[in-house]
Write a protein that binds this DNA or RNA. Structure first.
Lengths: 131, 131
DNA sequence: TGTTTGTTATATTGATTATATAACAAACAT
DNA sequence: ATGTTTGTTATATAATCAATATAACAAACA
């Protein structure tokens, strides 16, 4: 798993870490049961503070993606353990909406946006038809 | 146009205003050529500071959605005036990716995510087939 | 038994967000 | 022509967030 931090990004570092871990899991780079590097090791790798990585891990735990065992490590939960609640779906939908709306207002067509979605799926190596 | 502010949201107020204006335009509540309320009026309506609304307007101008005429007002640009650049599309795609990835990791299927997209389209009253 | 681990605590720095006032000059309405 | 409204600019303040820096603790691990 390679994580690239953009220091000048408007996205906080801890959020960049969270997202790239999620994408790594979605892509299959990391599988359920795998142990994440210790917060100290990953922090050293990324040249960031320990607490920054720790914040990411806890964010992922709050989302139900990880299980943190105190003084041991962080383990990726299986899909079965992750309960996809309607609240989570609604949250994602809520975050999706302004992006789609912006695209539409800027002049993108429905087709363009759906094509964009398919590109994202392809990038995450999800099995989609018609890519 | 009704704008609802959630003071406890983790989304900044100026960002909430920007998003809801964009959604209003996408939905057709506001049309190109329409003038937005003055920053002072809208701020009074929302019970927020003038500068907060001003920040929203300038964000929308930076995105190419508005034209601010100094000491006169803010006008919604037409789709023809708004140049949809590939950079803008890439930016949206970049923001879309972590949301989709999170959905996938949490156990959502491709179908569920595409259904979610269609719900968003429907909410924005975009003409989509199969909704 | 020593090392590694996550946890907790404290402190500091910088940036962001939001508000509060105030003044200015151009635009607007009557 | 006059008074009001407009966006702009400036300054100041408070609160929150993001990130770093140390340090110490106790459980887990080899």
């Amino acid at each position: 798993m390679i994580i690239q931090i953009e220091p000048q990004s408007d996205v906080p570092i801890y959020e960049q870490v969270s997202r790239q871990i999620i994408e790594g899991i979605a892509r299959g780079d990391m599988k359920p049961g795998d142990t994440l590097p210790s917060v100290r090791n990953l922090a050293a790798d990324l040249c960031v503070n320990m607490h920054t990585v720790n914040k990411s891990y806890h964010e992922l735990e709050a989302k139900g993606i990880l299980t943190i065992r105190a003084k041991s490590g962080a383990i990726i939960r299986s899909v079965e353990e992750r309960a996809l609640t309607s609240e989570q779906l609604q949250q994602i939908e809520k975050n999706l909406k302004p992006l789609v709306a912006e695209g539409m207002v800027l002049g993108a067509s429905v087709d363009q946006i759906e094509l964009m979605m398919k590109k994202v799926f392809a990038d995450l190596q999800m099995p989609v038809e018609g890519v």
